[in-house]
């Protein structure tokens, strides 16, 4: 192969861009997470695990390390909310995708278009909409007060529930589309066969439809879970400062040069969590292919 070979220079730009803007910088992030916090923000090169220790321990005025759960709680909340979001998306997506797949051909195209359309609408506008709905004096509060059901209520904003709503709303199309694709491939004769063998609707749903749409659900789970782990907008706008996720914890460490090595350590932790998840998922997929 010569340098004039298109097989080389056709791929070269992609390799160069990814190496310079991704691979190299991520290497630097790892180095920064091991460096020492600078006196005036920023960092000084070095080799120290202080930033990782800070995730678990707090140094008191005596220099003793004491276990602190505050950052573990944030990591736990991130995993929990991302998992719950994925689960809720799956539960909502299955029946909706099923109905769309059963619709007559002309309707089907329209309904798929309607599912994807909100995804084109700016993310920040879609999250902002929930502030209007959940916020103080928002749509929900006004409706409930108008009906005389409540007189005074706590804000629905800045809660785990608000973040969960925003996350499900943001990422549901990424679950519906792969689930829809696998339901479309499902042979209707199998459902009829199950019925002929006296399987009730629910038995059919559980024993025939669910197992056959599992690949779609799993693909959707990856598409929803990974961005949820790194969510920034939803926790900032709907969760506020008290209920943080890893995404906005990282963001605050870099905003205003607060603590770059610590922010880098959290970013590396997040990256490792995502990689472990993707690897487990790849292993599971391989095992399933092996069984088939």
């Amino acid at each position: 192969m010569s340098w004039r070979d298109f097989r080389i220079w056709g791929l070269a730009p992609a390799w160069v861009i990814m190496a310079l803007t991704l691979v190299l910088p991520i290497g630097i992030v790892v180095l920064v997470s091991l460096s020492i916090r600078g006196a005036y923000g920023g960092f000084d090169w070095g080799l120290s695990f202080d930033s990782y220790a800070k995730i678990l321990f707090e140094e008191d005025w005596d220099g003793n390390l004491a276990f602190t759960p505050q950052y573990l709680a944030i990591i736990g909340r991130t995993l929990w909310l991302a998992g719950l979001t994925t689960l809720i998306c799956a539960v909502l997506a299955l029946p909706a995708a099923y109905v769309i797949a059963q619709a007559p051909a002309r309707w089907k195209a329209v309904l798929v278009y309607l599912v994807t359309l909100p995804f084109w609408v700016s993310m920040i506008v879609r999250v902002y909409a929930w502030i209007i709905i959940l916020g103080n004096d928002g749509v929900i509060e006004k409706t409930l007060r108008g009906l005389g059901l409540v007189t005074d209520m706590d804000s629905l904003l800045f809660t785990n529930g608000a973040m969960l709503t925003g996350l499900v709303y943001s990422y549901i199309p990424l679950m519906i589309l792969p689930v829809f694709a696998s339901i479309e491939k499902l042979d209707p004769a199998l459902i009829e066969a199950s019925h002929d063998l006296y399987g009730s609707r629910w038995v059919t749903a559980r024993r025939v439809i669910l197992p056959l749409t599992l690949p779609g659900l799993m693909a959707g789970a990856v598409l929803v879970f990974v961005p949820c782990l790194g969510a920034v907008l939803e926790p900032i706008l709907l969760g506020g400062g008290k209920t943080m996720m890893m995404g906005n914890l990282i963001q605050t460490q870099f905003g205003g040069g607060r603590n770059w090595p610590f922010g880098a350590a959290i970013a590396v932790t997040l990256m490792v969590l995502v990689m472990v998840f993707l690897m487990l998922n790849a292993l599971r997929a391989r095992r399933e292919v092996g069984h088939a």
């Binding site: 991704l22 910088p25 992030v29």
Partner: peptide, 29 residues
């Protein structure tokens, strides 16, 4: 094409990582 599989992964690399990690990486760079 040599390294075809690896090259595909490289092209799709930004999809495999949370955006905040990439953002922090370019900020530091």
């Amino acid at each position: 094409v040599k390294l075809r599989r690896l090259s595909e992964t490289v092209v799709n690399l930004p999809l495999l990582l949370p955006e905040i990690v990439l953002a922090v990486a370019v900020l530091i760079l």
